[in-house]
Design a protein around this nucleic acid. Structure first.
Lengths: 338, 338
DNA sequence: CGATGTCATGGAATCGTTTCCATGGCGGAA
DNA sequence: TTCCGCCATGGAAACGATTCCATGACATCG
């Protein structure tokens, strides 16, 4: 099997600073300085070293660098469910900023399980310089504990003492509730997400307060999961609630409910108005196109990474950042039947 | 700024095998053996060492391990466009298998640019044990060159001498063409994807051959991009082609075209039948729901990772793996107008 | 003109782990 | 009983880069 030292060694071993040092006749430490600390060595040697490096196709070995410096150049991104289309834009935004800063993004998902999230976070943490926790199902204390080891930025949820980036759901919901009220809706429902989700609680209390302010009554309906299936399953409960409009935890459940309505002959928006949350890919595809409250997930991703990079650099500005939301009017909302 | 050695050091430094060695009174090398080579040390010392390790919350430092072994425990996943919903399932499948094998997935996207793809692949390669190249826009030779350095598995495209996983588009397209032919379509179009895409060429020749076999005529229509915008932009060309059915490169362009049709009063499927490719999230959401050829992207992801892990272990079974596709009948196909 | 400071560079320790080699103890075979 | 070999473990050298400290060559200042 293994003939020499490296069993599956295919190509020749990559060039190291020692190779460069040998070729240019300087000490490895000088090579290191030339490559990383501009102006620290004489212009002529730096020139020679850079040329040799280019010749050899030298690339810094990140593992070797990580050892003495303690910096891996990796950022971890832990989401509750990679399958959820919301994360698409988030990932993209995060990736963009990470690339700009020469950092690599390491991914993991926790399958909506708090226990799995904790163990994954711990494992991930040793391989990265900082961690992005998206829609965490962990308790505040657990997150704070993780944050004591390495920088953490929480996304889509604030955690005391930990920097975070989250949407400010209020502006979008104000628009939504104003619209519903203006059209004559007086009894509406909030189709809830996971109980462990901070954001779910936030949306419920906001919707509740806003509805009450406007003299509307609002009921909370549980869903089995924050997915299309969850929305489908909630159909019967929604019908039983006798409301004229539904505000959903997210677009996925809204879309699921929409499908169930169609199959049962309940016409949206004539018989029921429906508002989602997130404006995911596909929200404008459904028939009718889904009205929704848009969070700028791409922005959240890039802001969160920027914040994390700052924290890694020692920026202790552990602020909480809130990005505004806005209502996107499409075709799933109308005046109630009578 | 930096007070001590590590500037932003928050928590205490993690435990090392030296700590364990000190506590248990053995040599660090023994600790290493106890933890990684079962049976290599006496049962009693192994027991003591494991207990101490657990007490200290010891976790192997992957960077330190990578240095002597050359194995990082990371796999790279490079896709042409992270934004494309097709990759959702792929990522999920890949992540599942990677997790099962204790490997971490590192992500990058190349924004549909061959040059960016090459440089990103090179950068990524030094940080991983192997690379997954999804829908690569690179030339065969370039991929082979990369594969000479470290194991590579190509996804969605075969490369001579490099293991690959790709859908076998034929079965699904046979079903699709049979359906169209049976309904009476005689003149159809293929709405193409990127020219640099191997898969695009594959789909075109397959569609072409299949159409000719059945006595249908088929034209190729270019699109500006494999996105919804690309589909929208192609509307005029599609109309000008005077066909009764369109087979699209993927669901995204199909969906874009569908939207354009709706806006221009062309009713699908009455005036035009439309078939997509991939069965992405949302394909069943549109009105009418999109008929499409489904590739099992989740399977491709997990198979590809498994193959890559095998290659890393030295399994030189550089086979080409093809996963079957199937036609998914929904509502965007009907008999032609007259 | 000698003392001092600066600059470019060399030398060596270090990061945490793996692994090759050495060593001592013990059991079994002769 | 003696010798050989194995087994558990210790010791030390890598892996590739960073970084602190040392050194010698100059230039500068008084």
């Amino acid at each position: 099997m293994g003939d020499k030292r490296r069993p599956a060694a295919k190509g020749k071993t990559p060039a190291t600073i020692y190779d460069i040092a040998r070729i240019t006749g300087v000490n490895p430490s000088t090579v290191s300085r030339a490559l990383n600390q501009p102006g620290r060595v004489s212009a002529s040697t730096e020139q020679r070293i850079r040329e040799a490096a280019a010749d050899l196709g030298y690339r810094t070995n990140p593992m070797a660098r990580a050892l003495p410096t303690g910096k891996t150049g990796n950022l971890g991104l832990l989401v509750s469910d990679l399958t959820n289309p919301v994360y698409f834009d988030l990932v993209r935004g995060a990736e963009r900023i990470a690339r700009e800063h020469d950092a690599m993004l390491i991914f993991a998902d926790s399958q909506e399980s708090a226990e799995l999230e904790r163990s994954t976070a711990e494992r991930l943490q040793i391989a990265v310089d900082g961690l992005l926790l998206v829609a965490s199902r962990l308790e505040d204390a657990q997150i704070q504990e993780l944050a004591a080891a390495k920088p953490i930025v929480a996304v889509n949820r604030p955690v005391p003492g930990v920097p975070s980036v989250a949407p400010d759901v209020r502006p979008g919901m104000v628009e939504a509730l104003d619209l519903l009220h203006g059209l004559g809706h007086r009894r509406i429902a909030y189709l809830a997400g996971p109980e462990a989700s901070w954001m779910n609680g936030m949306k419920w209390v906001t919707a509740h307060d806003l509805a009450v302010d406007r003299g509307m009554s609002i009921v909370e309906i549980q869903s089995s999961a924050p997915t299309r299936e969850g929305g489908t399953d909630a159909f019967a409960d929604v019908m039983a609630a006798e409301v004229t409009a539904v505000l959903a935890y997210n677009d996925l459940v809204a879309l699921g409910l929409l499908g169930a309505c169609r199959r049962h002959g309940v016409e949206v928006p004539r018989d029921l108005s429906l508002i989602g949350f997130d404006d995911i890919f596909g929200a404008d595809l459904s028939a009718p196109a889904l009205s929704t409250v848009r969070c700028s997930w791409g922005d959240m991703g890039s802001r969160a990474v920027a914040k994390l990079l700052g924290a890694i650099e020692g920026d202790a500005s552990g602020a909480e950042l809130n990005l505004p939301t806005e209502f996107v009017a499409r075709d799933s909302v109308a005046a109630p039947r009578r």
